[in-house]
Simulated scan of single mutants.
Amino acid sequence: MSTPAPEDFSHPPLRPRLSVEEMLAAKNTQPIRSLDDLAADTFESDEELEEFLAFTYAERHRDVA
């Protein structure tokens, strides 16, 4: 009499392999046609953008000296 083998959870179960085109179609994506497609209004004002850039610059150069 044999006992069932324990399940192996060390590897995730295999999923069917999809092509890039199939994955994009499943998510109903559209190609980027211009840079305007990537534009986002992240900052409410030019001053807020300037503050962010100054902070980022300072943080990147904080430990350089």
Results as ranks from 00 to 15, higher is better:
P16H: 08
P16I: 02
P16C: 06
P16G: 03
P16E: 11
P16W: 00
R17D: 03
R17P: 01
R17E: 11
L18M: 13
S19P: 01
S19D: 00
S19M: 00
S19C: 00
V20Y: 02
V20N: 06
V20F: 05
V20I: 13
E21I: 09
E21S: 06
E21T: 02
E21L: 06
E21Q: 01
E21P: 00
E22D: 13
M23H: 09
M23V: 15
M23L: 03
M23F: 04
L24A: 14
L24M: 11
L24H: 06
L24N: 03
A25E: 11
A25F: 02
A25C: 05
A25L: 04
A25I: 00
A26Q: 09
A26Y: 07
A26R: 08
A26H: 01
K27R: 10
K27S: 09
K27T: 08
K27M: 13
K27N: 09
K27F: 00
K27G: 07
N28E: 10
T29N: 04
T29P: 01
T29Q: 08
T29W: 01
Q30N: 00
Q30D: 11
P31A: 00
P31M: 09
P31K: 07
I32G: 05
I32V: 15
I32A: 08
I32E: 10
I32H: 04
R33V: 14
R33N: 12
S34D: 11
S34Y: 10
S34I: 04
S34R: 04
S34V: 06
S34G: 15
S34K: 07
S34T: 15
L35Y: 13
L35T: 03
L35H: 12
L35I: 12
L35G: 14
D36P: 00
D36I: 07
D36T: 08
D36R: 05
D36V: 09
D36M: 08
D36H: 05
D37Q: 04
D37M: 07
D37R: 03
D37K: 07
L38V: 01
L38A: 09
L38P: 00
L38E: 02
L38N: 05
A39C: 05
D41P: 11
D41T: 12
D41L: 12
D41W: 09
D41N: 15
T42V: 15
T42L: 14
T42P: 02
T42Q: 12
T42Y: 09
T42A: 13
T42G: 05
T42W: 00
F43P: 01
F43R: 04
F43Q: 03
F43H: 07
F43E: 07
E44T: 13
E44G: 13
E44D: 12
S45H: 06
S45V: 14
S45C: 10
S45K: 03
S45M: 08
S45N: 07
S45R: 05
D46W: 08
D46M: 11
D46A: 14
D46T: 00
E47M: 12
E47Q: 15
E47Y: 12
E47W: 10
E47F: 13
L49G: 00
L49T: 06
E50W: 04
E51H: 11
F52E: 10
F52Y: 15
F52S: 07
F52A: 13
L53P: 00
L53G: 03
F55Y: 12
F55H: 08
F55M: 15
F55I: 11
T56V: 12
T56M: 11
T56E: 14
Y57N: 14
Y57K: 14
